[in-house]
Write a protein that binds this DNA or RNA. Sequence first.
DNA 1: GCCGATCCTAATGTATACAAAACGCCGGCG
DNA 2: CGCCGGCGTTTTGTATACATTAGGATCGGC
Lengths: 231, 231
Amino acid sequence: MARAPRAADAAYARIRALIAGGELAPGAPLREEELAALCGVSRTPVREALMRLEQDYLVRRTDGQRSYVADWSLDDIAEMFALRAMLEGHAAARAATRITPEGLEALRRLNARLASAVAAGDTEGFLAANRAFHDTVLGAAQSPRLAAMIGGLVEQPVVRRTAVRYGARELGQSHAEHEALIEAFARGDAGWAESVMAGHIRRAFHAFADASRAAPARSPDGSAPARAPRS
Amino acid sequence: MARAPRAADAAYARIRALIAGGELAPGAPLREEELAALCGVSRTPVREALMRLEQDYLVRRTDGQRSYVADWSLDDIAEMFALRAMLEGHAAARAATRITPEGLEALRRLNARLASAVAAGDTEGFLAANRAFHDTVLGAAQSPRLAAMIGGLVEQPVVRRTAVRYGARELGQSHAEHEALIEAFARGDAGWAESVMAGHIRRAFHAFADASRAAPARSPDGSAPARAPRS
DNA sequence: GCCGATCCTAATGTATACAAAACGCCGGCG
DNA sequence: CGCCGGCGTTTTGTATACATTAGGATCGGC
């Protein structure tokens, strides 16, 4: 239950969804007034939303403070995955020595759910379970700053595209890696947990990169993505 | 030349300085109107400043959106240093294979300046050179996201307090570690660079922790620090 | 024909007024 | 005596109007 239905939160969610859904193509300019009209709020909450989206690297601002939808090059994405591998690996290491029996049980349950989703070919179910799994690990790491950093980094659109392009075998591999992680946690082996997690993320990157090479740029309307001016 | 003397930037800098300087004690409530009056601007830029300070972990917001000066426990600081060690270590590894001869030369120059400052007992000079050195390494890593993360983490007040309490020998040790880093860069040895940097940061943490134990809490006016309500 | 300066337009930055919500207080009740 | 609920004050959230500045187009000069 969202306690506060703030306009700023609504605007944030809406704009984020527009970007994730591709309605706002990478490089497209974001005018505050236009977005305000789109969200049915004034510019003030839109400004807050844009600042938050900038934190998430979904929006880029030029020196003149104009906003554009961020366009991620494959290099950018590689960098992002590398950072995630390091950070989530670290989180897993911390979690290995801090996780409670309840947390461990939750992970087992979530991974079972993930397995069912894979078996049923349910991509949304997979994404939900996968996200919950990673969030649980992050919570067990008990490091708010680490969680915030990873949260800002996890480009939901990218994760989604990766999963959508995963084959059944690759999805199954995720399940197996999660199982290994659970085993490492059960034994309190921080080094193992870190290695498994880092490898898990890096494999996801290569799956994404392979898929990208097969089907590079895509825009809902088929038009060429707009380019933003100077960095 | 600051290109844009924006009120929001001014407010950010001013409030940040007030927190760093201790005029605003940890846990103290931050009312937007009061800060606006203090900075001679309206609430709008203050709001932006507070959001940025929250990113820097200098300000905490309750669920009710009220703002307080963040109070860092020693555990929090330990966590921060651990993250810094990991991130800056990673940055050093990247820099080792990317740094240009000019960058290397700049590091040598900066570390020489740092040595002079140490010899002269010039703490401010040390801080400036030290910061420039680390920024240069960060730049050479060519990872904007990594730079942003570390930037948000480097608690200037903490770094300052650490340096102020450093003895001459410890300051000299920083110089020596920087030299080792330069050597690792010159040889393009990413693993070495990472190890040196991580150790460098972790040593700084222990220096800080030792100093903190010797002289724990201090408030300019000597009053007990205010406590903020629920987390 | 190309480059540059200047003006114009359009977007953002700031200030203020109003609305809504949260916190704390006070009184009443168990 | 302690706890719970309602009410007033205070603080933040939102909307809007105005100021300022960046970007782009146009016109003139070379």
